[in-house]
């Protein structure tokens, strides 16, 4: 391949990666903004999305139903994590570092729960017929599944945008993210908003999980946690609590990792993303502290 083709191909991959990272990072950013809880188990929500689709696939091969199944499993898991574990820490006023460690514990638990049930071996996700057919779109060549993934991501992001900007509930989410105390004395049911935000973050992560599994047609219990750092990178570069920033950052991170992979050893893909993350943390440490609450 000549160098231009290499570049264009990697940019094409980059957009697919960006779509997946965006889904997971937007959810993470929103959830951290609204709930003020860091979440190391976000990778497992991605994994649960993939395995949820696998479970539904035992019953039906319908892509839409499989995807919804994956999203539902991840969404419910996220909701339950908050409702049954994290909420009790918050209620007691536990230090945030305990919450961070607790989510690491949850991550370990959930990942190994899948390993216990399904084993660590690779599980095959049946892809719809014709999904590997290549389509020329402008200078890029994408497979059917690539187009599906990007389409789903665009629909999901647009839906989230509508919810956040135009619905009473979405505005309440932004309000809680901005200033939880004031939200409370404004009569906003903060707990309900937080619970539903976990659900939404889970749904988005679940969709990302189905998408990741869709790119290879397979999954292992670490499929999500392998993605966690890239997702964190995008969320932090975009500014925690700023889902739109996460979207932009996801596109950057997706493109940079895939393009660099075309020139470096592709095993360094994650390393490149993490390097971006470390740079971001060093350059703007506030990204982690949701000081950006003031800006969104």
């Amino acid at each position: 391949m000549d160098s231009l083709t290499v570049l264009l191909t990697s940019i094409g991959f980059g957009f697919v990666t960006a779509a997946i990272v965006a889904l997971a990072a937007i959810g993470l950013s929103l959830q951290i903004g609204v709930t003020n809880v860091p979440n190391f188990a976000h990778g497992e929500l991605i994994t649960f999305g993939a395995y949820g689709a696998l479970i539904v696939q035992f019953v039906t091969d319908n892509v839409l139903l499989d995807t919804l199944g994956g999203m539902a499993l991840a969404g419910v898991t996220a909701w339950a994590m908050n409702r049954f574990v994290l909420q009790s820490f918050v209620k007691r006023g536990a230090p945030r570092i305990y919450l961070l460690i607790a989510t690491a514990g949850l991550s370990f638990f959930l990942q190994n729960l899948l390993a216990f049930i399904f084993g660590e071996r690779t599980q095959v996700l049946q892809l719809p017929a014709g999904s590997s057919t290549g389509y020329h779109v402008g200078p890029f060549v994408w497979t059917g599944i690539d187009l599906l993934i990007m389409g789903a991501a665009i629909v999901a992001v647009a839906a989230l945008y509508v919810v956040l900007q135009f619905t009473k509930f979405g505005k309440a989410q932004r309000a809680v993210s901005n200033n939880p105390e004031l939200a409370r004395v404004s009569g906003i049911p903060v707990n309900r908003v937080i619970n539903l935000t976990w659900l939404i973050a889970g749904l988005l992560a679940g969709l990302a999980g189905v998408a990741v599994a869709g790119t290879t047609g397979s999954m292992v219990p670490t499929i999500g946690s392998d993605f966690l750092l890239v997702v964190f990178a995008a969320a932090i570069v975009g500014g925690l609590g700023r889902p739109y920033g996460a979207l932009v950052a996801a596109v950057i991170v997706g493109l940079v990792t895939e393009v660099s992979a075309a020139y470096l050893n592709s095993a360094y893909k994650t390393t490149v993303a993490v390097a971006i993350l470390v740079l971001a943390i060093l350059i703007r440490p506030n990204g982690i502290f949701t000081v950006s609450r003031e800006i969104t």
Partner: peptide, 12 residues
């Protein structure tokens, strides 16, 4: 896997 799950729960 069970050991790891226990560890996660224990920590929490």
């Amino acid at each position: 896997a069970l050991q790891a799950m226990t560890l996660g729960v224990l920590l929490i």
